[in-house]
Nucleic acid binder design. Structure first.
Length: 463
RNA sequence: UCCGGGGUAGCUCAAUCGGCAGAGCAGCGGACUGUUAAUCCGUUGGUUGGGAGUUCAAGUCUCCCCCCCGGAGCCA
């Protein structure tokens, strides 16, 4: 008999019909009156299915009464309306097959709530909990919505390399990739001889696919990347991972306003999508994890983002009657506390801050006519802070070259990037969005380590 | 990396001034029951993160180390 996912059973009108389901047991409750209740979840939906197992089954004593939380079972039975209060339908089993038991002395999950920190130590089992099942489904929905959003707008999904010899930002610690024997590094003139390394030169895990994405945007007009990126920073916060997924759209013939429009439309689309498609999971998060979640998601999906310039932001902060730990001066970067004040207190909604001082931003950002600022934009959201960083790119060859030199970057690494400005250059713009931070915001999960299946952080690469 | 808070039973936590290491849940045994975080009775379960020191006596005080969490920096 063909198996049906529980999510489909729950919304079917197959009362009175025979169904087959399979999944993992959440609880078993026995009635000495001669039968047992099994709560079964297969991950297809937040809700599981209650199965009533009659004591008359051949393997009731031998198998069913041995079933405990975590066991994997298949059940065949009749779908009926449930007389109980907790569910609309249930299955009256005519057979129960146990694929695998889970020794309750050893199995670490229980009905009782377990702390997220403990669950990180058993990341291979935590998807079987309500919370992490829901996180996985919402994360999946956000990934699907991402592709849907860009595909519907004629963006081309681009695969950029994970191993790279260039440093996109000109800053930030990178993981080195090498096949050299670390215990016996080849040397030439006292330096490590990278001509003997796999690629013949030092290579690293990418921190961004942006520079490569620009090459395709300047040929195919609109592209986006969606893949893993890596930072070897010793960051120990609830918002940082050493390995995280990033989405980077890049558009040709576009300026900073087009960029802001895209970022706003994308973020609102994401949240509207999960509000429409993850109702049960979001209701769970709203009740148990973050009480204002639904209201916040609806508010962001439904309201226009505020847009201010960096200069205006600095003025607003200087006027604010708040004792900041860090002073606010034009020319220094906004601190976390400043960003939080702007998006959470001053405006109370997502905020796009544009036109930052050139000195504190990356070399590839387009210089404004004022000679001091660049066409950069950050999107700030309440609770998470900076969720998007982007810019219009410098398309003028001489200005870009000057910028590379001014930042002291190795010019020779950027020959192909500069070529884009020598041959058929065109204005273009794009941004990067940290996918984990979106999942964090969308679920209300406090720590980004709980928004990705297997988090990589300093000192932690288990599983 | 810096600052702060932590690490005690499988899990969540308590332990007063340094004085016999405890509870709830889970597990196990039993009772009861269309149950649904079931309930009731009983019961098993400890290298108090690791090491050194002070003391008659250390979960508790001192030092070193490891790990976790929060905030900051860096950033997405």
């Amino acid at each position: 008999m063909k198996r049906t996912l529980i999510k489909h059973v729950l919304v079917s009108d197959r009362i009175g019909e025979e169904v087959k389901i399979a999944g993992w047991v959440r609880t078993r409750r026995d009635s000495k009156g001669g039968f047992s209740f099994l709560e079964i979840n297969d991950g297809s939906s937040f809700s599981g299915l209650q199965v009533v197992v009659p004591g008359e089954l051949d393997n009731y004593q031998s198998d069913v009464l041995r079933v405990t939380i975590g066991s994997a079972v298949a059940v065949v039975g009749e779908l009926v309306e449930s007389p109980g209060a907790g569910q609309a339908v249930e299955v009256h089993a005519t057979s129960v097959f146990v694929y695998g038991y889970a020794d309750p002395d050893e199995y670490p999950l229980q009905k009782k709530r377990i702390g997220f920190e403990k669950l990180r130590e058993i990341a291979h089992l935590r998807p079987r909990t309500n919370t992490f099942g829901a996180v996985a489904r919402v994360r999946n929905a956000l990934a699907y919505a991402t592709h849907k959003f860009y595909q519907e707008r004629d963006f081309l999904y681009l695969h950029t390399p994970m191993i790279t010899a260039s440093d996109a930002e000109g800053a930030g610690e990178m993981f080195q990739v090498t096949t050299l024997d670390m215990g016996a590094l080849p040397r030439a003139d006292g330096e490590i001889d990278y001509t003997q390394d796999f690629f013949g030169k030092p290579t690293f895990l990418t921190v961004s696919g942006q520079l490569e994405a620009e090459t395709y945007a300047l040929a195919l007009d609109r592209v986006y990347t969606f893949g893993p990126t890596f930072r070897a920073e010793n960051s120990n916060t609830r918002r940082h991972l050493a390995e995280f997924w990033m989405i980077e759209p890049e558009m040709a013939f576009a300026d900073l306003d087009d960029n802001s429009d895209l970022a706003e439309a994308y973020i609102r689309f994401l949240f509207q999508y999960i509000l429409d498609n993850c109702v049960e999971d979001l209701a769970f998060f709203n009740k148990w994890v973050d009480e204002g979640l639904l209201e916040r998601l609806e508010s962001i999906a439904g309201s226009d983002f505020e847009r201010i310039s960096y200069t205006e932001a600095v003025q607003a902060l200087q006027k604010a009657d708040v004792g900041f730990e860090y002073p606010v001066d034009w020319g220094t970067d906004l601190q976390s506390e400043h960003e939080r004040y702007l998006t959470e207190v001053a405006y109370g909604k997502p905020l796009i801050v544009t036109d930052y001082p050139a000195d504190i931003k990356a070399f590839y950002m387009r210089h404004n006519d004022d000679g001091k600022t660049v066409a950069a934009m950050d999107v700030l959201v309440p609770g998470v802070g900076e969720i998007v960083g982007g810019s219009q790119r410098e398309e003028r060859h001489d200005v870009l070259l000057e910028s590379i030199r001014a930042k002291g970057l190795p010019e020779e690494h950027y020959w192909w990037y500069l070529d884009l400005r020598r041959f058929g250059t065109a204005p273009h713009a794009g941004f990067g969005l940290g996918f984990g931070r979106v999942v964090q915001f969308a679920t209300g999960m406090h720590n980004i380590r709980d928004a990705i299946p297997f988090p990589r952080t300093p000192n932690s690469a288990e599983f």
